[in-house]
């Protein structure tokens, strides 16, 4: 069992091991269409961990992060950052958090260096401290050559790096990353992952949202799977796979759907098959392994006009399918 580092709350003197504490959080957007974006989320993030919120678009991840970062007011429930209530003391809470929003919000009127420098000044750094910290971060994030560039001259990956550097410049306790790899090419995404893992070594707690299961899987110590504003499961990627999705999901797409129930019933009894679900364009077979099974499945499905087979090895994706009956992209 890993022991978590302790963290002393700013100005409260209390030592914390739980950095982000979310209790019974809800957010309802009133309007023509009443939307319950967050519907009772409880979770706590430990000091020093990388915590992933995984779910499809519209699951309530961004709203949850917006509330935790003081940008959105909750309808009910509380969020505390190292003991500081974000609704009652937003200005205090902002000293403890760093935020990398989904979009590039770099100050277009300032250079890369100045974006970090003035961020430090907003947080009370003196001129000397701000200059030193900015230089240090530019070097650490391999941005030193671009210090005089303006944000509009940067590629998406570079801008994202500047945003991370800026977000941690005031040495926050926890960094929130909202969909950090949205719009990044694969190479920049890998670079971003490395940067995030580096942060953990510096003792910064990281909370990230993503709808890429690979990202949640390879980066996070623990993952919360959210859908429709609710948390469906929580645990390390390994534990989630063991608990919910230690199964290969084989999707059989069929041309003729009239006899599909019979096909599903026939498959259910077979060895190696744990469950069969009928979906809109065929059947979904859950099994312990695809080995040896494929031939039988093809044989059984052929009379129904089998037109495609997709196999998903156990992953957070299959966990999500198991929990919701949908895949993340739906």
């Amino acid at each position: 069992m890993r022991t978590w580092p302790h963290f002393q709350g700013v100005r409260t003197g209390v030592w914390y091991t739980v950095i982000v504490e979310i209790e019974a959080l809800t957010k309802v957007y009133e309007g023509k269409q009443r939307v319950k974006a967050v519907d009772g989320i409880d979770l706590s993030v430990q000091a020093g961990e990388i915590f992933g919120l995984l779910g499809p678009n519209g699951a309530g991840k961004t709203t949850t992060i917006s509330i935790a970062t003081t940008r959105t007011l909750p309808t009910s429930g509380t969020v505390r950052i190292a003991g500081v209530d974000v609704v009652r003391h937003p200005a205090e809470a902002r000293r403890l958090i760093g935020v990398v929003p989904q979009y590039n919000t770099l100050d277009r009127s300032l250079t890369i260096y100045e974006n970090i420098y003035y961020h430090c000044r907003y947080f009370g750094f003196s001129h000397g401290q701000a200059r030193e910290r900015s230089d240090e971060l530019l070097t650490q994030f391999l941005l030193a050559e671009r210090r005089k560039a303006y944000p509009s001259q940067l590629s998406g990956g570079l801008a994202q790096r500047v945003q991370i550097a800026r977000a941690i410049a005031h040495r926050p306790t926890v960094l929130f990353l909202d969909e950090p790899s949205a719009g990044l090419d694969p190479q920049s995404r890998l670079a971003m992952w490395t940067a995030v893992q580096q942060l953990r070594k510096e003792g910064i707690t990281v909370v990230l949202t993503t709808h890429y299961m690979e990202e949640a899987d390879s980066l996070s110590d623990r993952v919360a799977i959210v859908d429709h504003g609710r948390m469906l499961a929580l645990g390390s990627p390994q534990k989630l796979k063991e608990t919910f999705g230690a199964q290969t999901v084989i999707h059989l797409a069929l041309r003729q759907m009239d006899q599909v129930e019979a096909l599903a019933a026939g498959l259910r009894g077979q060895a190696g098959i744990q469950n069969v679900e009928v979906v809109s364009d065929g059947v979904r077979v859950f099994s312990t392994s695809s080995e040896g099974l494929l031939q039988e499945l093809v044989h059984a499905a052929a009379p129904h006009g089998l037109r495609d087979i997709a196999i998903a090895e156990p992953s957070l994706e299959t966990v999500f399918i198991q929990l919701t009956g949908r895949d993340l992209r739906e």
Binding site: R71, R94, R95, V99, T105, L106, D107, Y122, F123, G124
Partner: peptide, 10 residues
């Protein structure tokens, strides 16, 4: 949304 970083100041 350039104002964001300033809004997030303490």
């Amino acid at each position: 949304r350039e104002i964001d970083d300033r809004v997030m100041c303490p």
